[in-house]
Nucleic acid binder design. Structure first.
Length: 910
RNA sequence: GGGCGAAUAGCUCAGCUGGUUAGAGCGCCUCGCUUACACCGAGGAGGUCAGGGGUUCGAGUCCCUUUUCGCCCACCA
């Protein structure tokens, strides 16, 4: 066997980064290069993905890793199909998240953003961004992602900022963006409004406080229950149900707000649930969304009792300046002292918390900018309903529809400094001008006022998702009519986690349809969340975070990728276990060693290559006549697995596709074909050996293509060692996905299957009888109709089952020997006269068990075939499969009966 | 209160148009360093596919229902 420079163990650390740089430097990630070298078909439909942009100051986590794995797999597969393939990468400025980290940094330096001022602060964030941008993209590259870095974008770069301006102004001019004072979700720590989606609710223990609303000029009172006593200070009414006899007489009268002494009306509203609490509801329009609605209906005043940091303001009277929760306790104590309380009892609360900081969100009235969503939602619903956009898995369509059909306006203003500043300038009278820049605004102002005036720009910035919502087309150059936009839009697949279907996917669809008149992508593929081995969400506080970079270091990128691709099904969460990654590391090593074996056997001899398309070029196969049974079998299996893998990937069943390739390569190619091939490889017929080498090489080469999208590094690394491939000849990354292959023959499947069964049966018997592994044993095979097949492949049986070739008998019909183990498999009966080793009682038990098993099968088949319903109604091909063959043939079962009977009559030592 | 998902071997999971005797990895037991691989090879044990009903010639797979867990949405103080 020839020497090879391939080390015994696959050394991923040595090859990964080098291969990545080589791919990138060759421009293989760019559609232009693919077309230039003739790999991509200019007439084929391009395949395009917009990469979900990671937070520019974030670090790679498993969410990114799964995204990268799936998208790169799709990209590589489609590139190999010869479609011009574009994957646009980029990063997101992530307003709140990024601003927060820089604010924390300033805090550590003993200063604050307010101290340094807006301009300097924003500059600080840019510097921070520049520093961290390298980190995240470098980490992404470790995943092997073949995206076009020359087209990389950032949500705050000039082009994308221009897109944001265009989108905002155009929506504004259409009246779809408005400004208004409403109750919004206020984050007291970040001191900004957040959208409904950014609020998460958690069940927490709390109290329900019962107290008295005393009637004005009376000692009567209405009992009222609340979970947030501090909001009493902002009450502007008490509501009861109009039909509630208990309180009917109070409606229209006034009650006195505790401590503050304000008189507020008792009103009747059907919203009130008579069953809950006391059946009377205090109304705080300034700090509760429901109360806000009721307030509107009854024209109640809105009192804001809090400052931006959620301390009480002057409306809080004696509690002015106190924290909202301190005020809650103090107020309750004061009310207790005044005899106004009734009781408090434990009560489970649904507490709104900020998705970002985790602090309790305070509903507060403030002036914000909103996008009117309803007019945008209609077309977005239609796009999915009509199939213009397909969602995988389909069940998420329902969730999408439900959300879209109940859509609420989107609060897009944030009281931050890091982000796209809202392009609005206000005149002295507050009149708003939407403009691309200040001079444009001034011009508008002059036209409006007839004179030059001083304008103030809106200080707020836009929600980060506003710019991400434009991502699929802004990254291609919109609003400019660029070639990229023309060529690569709509994109093909939007692949992301189901957790951001509302945040992102829904908004890209609405905004995409609005601004481009077309869907932003044809398919939405949603993956699940990666969880830890116990199924918990990975979080820093739990300390259960697996760092992809550690995993890559320990097991290699391919192992991680393959694990993430094959662990589960679309849309379902995945528990990631290190043992699976380890298993897949072993898989990579297994393939490496199989290749090493093949390459060593190819030696230095030049291998004949097939003609035709250089991207298709592979090893020439020997003439059909030169193919032995194992060759025909593995080629037939390869043809099947190619078809299945193709079908499965095309229907997004990536995990199943990967699994089948794994099984094919390990269990069929390595465990059976390579072992079978050794017979002829080391035999004395050079022509046969050469034919075997050709098949070994061909199947390996084609398999590497099939596996490449799943495990790009190990496959390319092997490819580089294949004679005639790699290097100057062809990189696997741009090789063609194998086309459908002629199926060699179903007979080969069937015949090789018999051999396998027989080999397994003999190995099993050897093991049960503790035959030393090295020992060659005698076998007599009663082969029936398969005599010719077994004669022809006797060397295979000899080698794989370690038989003694001198003492192997194969005949159509042999008498049943005594003192021999009898194995009925593959349509033949194998007798192993393991002299002195056969425990007859044990053998009898074993055979009876087998016989029962086979009888069971026979009964099942007879039952089926005698059932007119089955024969009449089942499809012909299903019926076809059932007739007796192999182990379940009646003649086989009969021979078993004979064997068992004779054994039963045989006494030990006979 | 709605909706969705999960329940299959000791553990983690596949099994998508219903069709042989339900699979894999890990773990476990027995062997084996046979010139690709001990990140390996051979053999083995282990499952009434959560329970119940139904449709069908045939159900892990489709329908109904119950139970347990998880998630999403929703205005109950």
């Amino acid at each position: 066997m020839a020497d090879t420079k391939m080390p015994k163990a696959y050394d991923y650390a040595r090859v990964e980064e080098e291969l990545y740089d080589w791919w990138e430097q060759n421009g293989f990630f760019r559609p232009e290069t693919q077309l230039e070298i003739g790999q991509a078909d200019p007439d084929a439909a391009p395949f395009v993905i917009s990469m979900p942009p990671p937070n520019v100051t974030g670090a790679l986590h498993l969410g990114h890793a799964i995204t990268s794995s799936i998208e790169d797999m799709l990209i590589r597969y489609n590139r190999m199909l010869g479609r011009p393939t574009l994957w646009v990468p980029g990063t997101d400025h992530a307003g709140i998240a990024t601003q927060s980290v820089v604010e924390r940094k300033l805090e550590q330096q003993g200063t604050s953003r307010h101290e340094v001022g807006r301009e300097r602060f924003v500059q600080e964030v840019w510097d921070w961004k520049d520093e961290y941008h390298q980190r995240i993209t470098g980490q992404q590259k470790r995943m092997g992602i073949s995206c076009d870095w020359t087209r990389e974008r950032f949500t705050l770069d000039d082009g994308l900022s221009d897109a944001v301006l265009e989108a905002f102004i155009s929506l504004y001019n259409e009246g779809l963006i408005y400004r208004g004072t409403y109750l919004v979700n206020w984050s007291p720590n970040l001191q900004t409004a957040v959208s409904d989606l950014e609020v998460e609710y958690s069940e927490e223990p709390g109290k329900l406080y019962y107290f008295k609303y005393v009637l004005k000029d009376s000692d009567q009172f209405i009992p009222v229950a609340t979970t947030r006593p501090e909001t009493i200070l902002g009450d502007t009414a008490v509501a009861v149900h109009p039909d509630d006899a208990r309180y009917r007489d109070f409606v229209g009268k006034k009650v006195i707000v505790p401590v503050l002494g304000r008189a507020i009306p008792v009103i009747a509203d059907e919203y009130v649930d008579r069953e809950f609490g006391t059946g009377a509801l205090k109304i705080t329009p300034g700090h509760d969304p429901n109360d806000y609605e009721i307030g509107l209906r009854h024209d109640l005043p809105v009192i804001n009792i809090m400052n931006k940091d959620a301390t009480l303001n002057e409306e809080g009277g004696p509690y002015n300046g106190m924290d909202r929760f301190a005020a809650r306790d103090k107020l309750w104590a004061d009310m207790e002292a005044a005899g106004l309380t009734i009781k408090s009892e434990p009560h489970a609360l649904r507490v709104p918390r900020s998705q970002r900081g985790g602090e309790i969100i305070e509903p507060m009235v403030s002036t914000q900018w909103f996008v009117k969503m309803e007019p945008l939602a209609g077309p977005a619903i239609d796009a999915v309903r009509s199939g213009a956009i397909r969602i995988v898995p389909e069940r998420f369509e329902k969730i999408y529809f439900h959300w879209m059909e109940n859509i609420r306006d989107w609060c897009i203003s944030r009281q931050l400094w890091w982000g796209h500043r809202i392009p609005i300038w206000y005149g002295p009278d507050g009149h708003a001008f939407a403009a691309r820049d200040e001079s444009d605004a001034l011009e508008q102002a002059i036209a409006h006022y007839g004179d030059t005036v001083h304008l103030e720009q809106e200080p707020d910035v836009l929600d980060t998702w506003f710019s991400s919502g434009l991502w699929p087309f802004s990254t291609l150059g919109w609003p400019q009519a660029t070639d990229d936009l023309e060529t690569y839009y709509p994109t093909s697949v939007m692949e992301t986690g189901y957790d951001i279907i509302f945040f992102w996917v829904a908004r890209m669809i609405t905004l995409g349809l609005k601004f481009t008149g077309d869907v932003p992508f044809r398919t939405v593929y949603l993956h699940g969340l990666v969880r830890d081995e116990e199924g918990r969400k990975m979080s820093k506080s739990l300390g259960n975070v697996l760092d992809p970079l550690d995993l890559i270091r320990d097991y290699g990128t391919d192992a991680l990728r393959f694990t993430l691709l094959t662990g589960g099904t679309p849309g379902n969460d995945m528990k990631l276990s290190v043992t699976r990654i380890e298993a897949n590391r072993n898989f990579a090593n297994k393939i490496w060693n199989a290749a090493r074996f093949v390459i060593m056997n190819l030696g230095d001899e030049e291998m004949a290559l097939s003609d035709g398309d250089p991207f298709d070029r592979t090893y020439a196969l020997p003439d059909a006549a030169a193919l032995a049974l194992p060759d025909r079998w593995i080629l037939s299996r390869l043809a099947d697995v190619r078809d299945e893998a193709t079908r499965l990937i095309d229907s997004f069943q990536l995990g199943e596709a990967g699994r089948q390739l794994y099984e094919f390569l390990w269990n069929e190619y390595c465990d059976w074909y390579i072992e079978a091939a050794k017979v002829r490889l080391y035999g004395d017929d050079p022509a046969q050996a050469q034919a075997t080498r050709q098949v070994l090489a061909y199947v390996l080469e084609q398999s590497l293509r099939l596996l490449h999208p799943f495990m790009p590094f190990v496959t390319e690394a092997i490819w580089e060692n294949l004679p005639g491939m790699g290097g100057e000849n062809l990189a696997l990354i741009v090789a063609r996905w194998p086309g459908a292959m002629a199926h060699q023959s179903d007979q080969a499947d069937d015949a090789f299957g018999r051999i396998q069964e027989m080999v397994r049966a003999i190995r099993n018997a050897r093991s049960e009888y503790n035959v030393e592994p090295a020992r060659r044993i005698i076998a007599q095979i009663s082969a029936g109709e398969h005599e010719a097949l077994l004669q022809e492949n006797a060397p295979l049986l000899v080698s794989l089952a370690r038989l003694d070739p001198e003492q192997l008998t194969i005949a159509a019909d042999l008498p049943t020997p005594s003192k021999a183990a009898a194995l009925a498999h593959g349509g033949a009966t194998i007798y192993l006269p393991l002299a002195g080793m056969v425990d007859l009682d044990a053998e009898r038990r074993r055979l009876e068990k087998e016989l029962a098993n086979i009888d069971g099968q026979l009964q099942r088949i007879n039952g089926l075939l005698n059932n007119p319903g089955f024969v009449g109604k089942a499809p012909a091909e299903v019926v076809e499969r059932e007739p007796p063959n192999r182990t379940n043939s009646p003649s086989n079962v009969n021979s078993w009966r004979v064997t068992c009977a004779s054994l039963s009559n045989t006494r030990l030592g006979d």
